[in-house]
Structure formats: structure tokens, C-alpha cells
Write a protein that binds this DNA or RNA. Structure first.
Lengths: 191, 191
DNA sequence: AGGCAAATCAGACGATCGTCTGACACCGAG
DNA sequence: CTCGGTGTCAGACGATCGTCTGATTTGCCT
């Protein structure tokens, strides 16, 4: 019921990429049609507005992130390992992050200036990370409230590193900051 | 020569506010005309394109930041005091930062997806902070290269805190992170 | 083969975008 | 009083935006 046709999936995949690389407002239906190989008349059969299309894109990303977090939780045998895996995931996306920023963070920045409903959908993706990281910090023995503070601090530091690296187009900056974040992490996770 | 007329200044002031609160691409000449009380036909007498208007806005912000940094440098009697003053400045802007994000950071995020020339003008404002903070860390005895790393790390942490606080509309988050940054700062600045 | 809903596609629609033109108001110099 | 330049303003321009309609094709069911 969610992915009725193949072209619907192609539209979502193209939109996901374009919204990320060029921004939501800055991506037109003409761009989407060209990228997806689907005439724009067809878009309104699947999504009755551009906002609804972004909703579907966020839904897809939400599902992907949730699946990835499940995998990590299953593979990491200690909370420390889980936290480090998060940082390593950011590292593995270095090139795209330097070129386009954080897919969730930059979208939140763009939507934050208007459009409360879509902003909530984007924040839901961020919440997945917050909750998963909070669980890891809790396992480390931090009381619940402080665990969430640490989770958001970790995310804030990652966001900041990405913003600066993106602003300066500086991949070394991102790598260096992520290393520093890892060092900070091992202080929070006494072995 | 730079501010030939009063209406030119009104246009820049309005544009500066609207570009910040609503975003650059999302602010139309109709919006600007309504906010500045200047008919849009007049805009092209002062600025021959919207991009040039943004250039003037960035120039104004650049001048303001440079002036503020000069004042701080004169008032702060120790490098520690200067660094703390930077954090306090961010604190004093809490409400706007939570509502709209960082004026420089969010603009860099928006422009980073396209428009290389304007991105450079925005980055010039960020560079003012980088250079000023680098000078303070150098005064603390850090070698030049490491001082710049610390300056960018401080800015990255501030950016990240603002992005998260903006995403969640959470002023307490911003205040808490800034306090943590201050604590981190005093570790880098052994008295 | 025939029928019918699901899916596809081309193109028109009004609105709005950034840009530009040309006429008009103001005002000190001659 | 006249002139010329600086600044002001209303409105038109083509382009492009997101949206929508109607006709057409596809593919499954009997």
C-alpha cells in the first residue's frame, strides 16, 4: 500500500537526492521530472502536493535510519561500540556531508524558517538518533535525563562540525573534529 | 559613497532582517518592498540584482561584526576574557538564534548548495570570527596552527548548539550547551 | 476479445518570481 | 524661472513556479 508502483519509488528516490543536494525550495518539479524520467503530470497522481512528496521522502529516510539503528544495536556488543559506530557512520559520509551538509540538519534549518508541520517530520528523524544514542548513554550508567543531554550534545557537535566543514569545503576539518568527538566520547564512557 | 540615500539604508536594514528570518531565496521583492516601505521599482536603482542586494547586506553585517570584535579586543584585558565574551554574545542572542538559527551559519548552509560567489562573501564574515578567536588562542600560548583549530572548534560547537536548539525550539538546550562550551574553554585556557 | 480501473503523460492554468522600463517629483545651480 | 541630474515610483515583461485537467495507454479480470 505504501509503494504501489515502481515509478512512485523512482520519484521518491530522485526527490530524496535532489532535495538533499539542491535544497527543498530550490528543487522544482521540472528538475524532478528530468531527474526521475517521469513527466511532471504524473507526480500529482502519486502525491497531491510538493509538501506531501517531501513527507514521503522523510518517511523513506525515517525508515532507513530506523533500520540502520536496529542493525547497529544488534551488532554492537557494548554501548561504547554503538556510540563509536555512530561517529564512524558520519565519517563514512564525509564527502557528501562536506559538499551538501547534513541531510537532516540542513533540511531542519531550511524548514525551520517556516512550515511547522514538515519541520516536525524532519525532527522525527533526528529524534530517532536522539533516542538511540540516549539508550546507549543510559546503558553506560548515566541517569536518564543526563543521558539525553549527552545524546543531544553528541549530535550538536556532529552538526556543528558538518556545518563548518560544509561552509569551508574542508574535509580535513570534519575528520579532525570527528576524531575530537571520539576522544570526548571515551571520556563519557569510562571503561 | 556607500550609503548615498536614506532609502538605500532602509532597504538594506529590511533585507537584512527578512533574509535572516525567512531565508534569502524565500524572501521576495514584494516582501522587501512591503517591509521597507519602498516600492520595488526603486530597488533596482540602488542594487541591480537581488544577489547584489545580498552582497550589500553581507557587507553591512561584516562591518558590524568587525566593529564589535574591535570593541571586545579593546575591553577584554585577558585572552580568557575575550573568549568568554564571545560565548556571552551568543547567549545574549538566544531568542533570535532559537527562532531563526545563526544568521551566518544558516545563510552559509543555504548558499552552500549553490552560488559560489555569495557563499564566499558569507564565509568572509565567519572568517572574522575565526581570525579573532585564533588570535585569542594564540595569546594563550597555543601554537598558530593549533590556535586556528581551536577557534574553528569553538565556532563549530556554537553552530551545532544553535542548529539543535533551532531544530527543537529549545532555548534551554542552547543555554546548557553554551555553559558546557564555557567549561571546555577554561580547560583550553589554563590560568 | 472486451471492459475497466490503474497508471501515464502532454500541456494549459493562474500566480508569483526577479527584472526592467519610462514617466514623474524633487532640488540646487545658472 | 528653467534646466538637468538624482532619486522615486507604478506597472509591464518574460520566465518559471506548483498545480491541475483531460486524454491516452497499460494490464489484469472475465
Amino acid at each position: 500500500m505504501s509503494d504501489r508502483t515502481e515509478s512512485r519509488g523512482r520519484i521518491i528516490a530522485s526527490a530524496r537526492r535532489l532535495f538533499y543536494e539542491a535544497g527543498y525550495e530550490n528543487t522544482s518539479y521540472a528538475d524532478l521530472a528530468a531527474a526521475a524520467g517521469v513527466p511532471k503530470g504524473n507526480f500529482y497522481y502519486h502525491f497531491k502536493s510538493k509538501d506531501e512528496l517531501l513527507g514521503a521522502v522523510l518517511e523513506a529516510r525515517h525508515a532507513d535510519v530506523a533500520a540502520a539503528l536496529d542493525t547497529w544495536a544488534a551488532q554492537a556488543r557494548t554501548p561504547q561500540e554503538g556510540l563509536r559506530r555512530f561517529v564512524r557512520m558520519v565519517m563514512s559520509e564525509e564527502e557528501a556531508l562536506v559538499a551538501y551538509g547534513c541531510p537532516v540538519g540542513s533540511l531542519l534549518t531550511e524548514l525551520g524558517k517556516h512550515r511547522d508541520d514538515l519541520r516536525e517530520a524532519a525532527r522525527a528523524v533526528m529524534d530517532l538518533y536522539v533516542e538511540w544514542l540516549t539508550a546507549r548513554f543510559t546503558e553506560l550508567g548515566h541517569p536518564a535525563r543526563h543521558a539525553e543531554v549527552l545524546a543531544k550534545r553528541l549530535l550538536a557537535r556532529a552538526q556543528g562540525a558538518i556545518v563548518m566543514a560544509h561552509a569551508y569545503g574542508d574535509q580535513a576539518l570534519l575528520r579532525r573534529e570527528l576524531k575530537d568527538i571520539e576522544a570526548w566520547l571515551s571520556e563519557q564512557a569510562p571503561t
